[in-house]
Amino acid sequence: MKKFINTAETMVAESVEGFVRAHEEFVVFGVDRKFIRRRHIVPGKVAIISGGGAGHEPMHIGFVGHGMLDAACVGHIFTSPTPSQIASAIEEADTGAGCVLVVKNYDGDVMNFEMAAEMASGRHKIETVIVGDDIETARTGDGRGRRGIAGTVIVEKLLGAAAERGMTLAELKGLGDSLAPRIRSMGVALTGVAVPHTQRSTFALGPGEMEMGVGIHGEPGHSREPFSNADTIVRHLSETVYDDIARAAGKALLFVNGLGGTPPAELYLAYNTAHQFMVNHGLRIERSLVGTYATSLDMQGLSVTLAFLTDEEFSLWDSPVATAALRWGC
């Protein structure tokens, strides 16, 4: 495992520092480097705050800036940030209009954000939006087990744009919660990844194997399958995602996300297959996103995300955004 790091202990801090140096235009460190926040906080706007373990870059720090997040907290690799980091971010980003915490559905993230909200609730109005866009497997039953993966990008973009337009805290909470059932993702891994701290790969794949239904923490998926060609793999992902929310229907955003070690050329090839699948199933793909946005260290793999949005939500998607990883309209 060759990686561009110095020590496992310092890699997150060094990477985040490099990020801040590269994007001073948009971001600065918060107090004691506990979080990253946008350079210019907008008074009176509801603050949108997210965070999670490191190893998913550019998520979430790459989405801090105008039209998206006001602050992002970074934990150790694949480990939730602490309540103290999150509470400090709330303190600095909330100018009185309240704040929305966007949390990927993992027990660790949910509990740490929950504790932070408890800590800060005396001085701040706080709402939490839990993102669980991962496909539902038979085993997860009531859907509580659905994890937040690449679809989180879409939630953060739409909430960020809506907050910029002046939406209230309650409205934003409503928007966030209503999105959940209309965004669905599924991932596949061609390689496992090892967290440098532990040097232990959570799963190892042979040359003819792939892991289906993976999340973004190097955790195993729901099944090991023989490796196949792109069309077979991507059609399977597309079909599963489609079947999981076909009930939503309408106009869609299609998003192919790289897990860190898969290059743009392969992502575009996969997008081609996913797009064809969706069009063949009668969907209108109104917007697309293809790239490396929510990673699992340097994992080779990708996920397919389908989101059914309203016209209003598409207009939020199109709204200006100026962050390191997503930028348009300004």
Partner: peptide, 15 residues
């Protein structure tokens, strides 16, 4: 405990 650990164990044991 909480400031040192952000994993699931952090909030569980801190609580």
């Amino acid at each position: 405990f909480l400031n040192a650990v952000g994993a699931s164990s952090g909030p569980l044991y801190a609580t």
